[in-house]
Amino acid sequence: MFDQFWTHLLLPVLYILAIVVPLILAVAMFVYWERKVIGWMHVRMGPNKIGPLGMLQAFADVVKLLIKEVILPTNSSKFLYYLAPMLALVPAFAAWAVVPFGEKMVLANVNAGVLYLLAMTSLGVYGIILAGWASNSRYALLGAMRSAAQVISYELAMGMSVVCVLVLTGSLNLTDIVHAQAGNKGFFDWYWLPLLPVFIIYFISGVAETNRAPFDVAEGESEIVAGFHVEYSGSAFAIFFLAEYASMILVSFLAAIFFMGGWLSPLQGWITADAPRWINWIWTGGFIWLFIKAFLFSFLFLWFRASFPRYRYDQIMRLGWKVFIPITIVWVFVAGLMKYYGWVTIGTGA
């Protein structure tokens, strides 16, 4: 009885907490890192008062947010108003169930992993729409409309880019997708090379999908204040914030898994020396590589925010529909040709 309980409930929940807790900490440190990096790029200090180098700033912010008043605006729909942040948070976290962190380091090694990821990232838009609708405020509704239209437009480009990866790997399983990129040509085995245009499109769509600068018209401060979550305060706002940053980190991880070989080493096949395990991962690959790659991608989010001025809304829609979608459609066919003529082969790692 207890054995069953242990293997089917307690153990998986422990594994899940081993993903969720570091993820929340990662979000907190990412917020700190964002403020610090943008501070440096603006030749400012960034947060530096709380804790060493200001590192505890994010935790202080969390405490502050949690003890703030949660406002329920007069004309809002109560149930939907509280449901919306949940609908934003749950997919952003649940998507992590299928992300492989390393060889065998995956919670659910499911065969429909990519499909599940696409489903989860698509659900995020409901939180946005509902938040705008339930608040019953002009800014919130306008922000939600803009945001939803933008998110679904870029989801198409994102989906098409993923199809290109699937053509080359022939599997919806994320672990298989990483294995397929194994080889002995170092980082030239990874899919960023044959799929270079869609790799770039995937990441830019990811930035647009998470409503980040330069695509952050949803919360363009100078026009519609904070967009869909303008009425939210306290912990309800904190949930939206958590969801947004968790999905940014998710996009970074997925870009690393789909196009940059996941946990594989960029030196794979070049060095075959025999060394102790704690050095060995540098060329045989390990979860540290995935974390380094994801860190670099998430750094790009911050770099973009500090560097680029905000796009106009019509420019965003034009980029999504008239540039990205045609390129990805063409590249699906190109990927098919590459696969058919064997220019890109499935790696040896499988």
């Binding site: 089917h8 409930l9 998986p12 929940v13 594994y15 899940i16 907490l17 993903i19 969720v20 942040p85 949940m86 948070l89 749950v90 976290f93 649940a94 992590w96 169930a97 299928v98 919670l107 659910a108 499911v110 599940y116 949930i239």
Partner: peptide, 14 residues
């Protein structure tokens, strides 16, 4: 099953 559990944990967190 772990996927379902994960969704439940996420709902609980929210």
């Amino acid at each position: 099953w772990p996927v379902l559990l994960f969704i439940a944990v996420a709902i609980g967190l929210g």
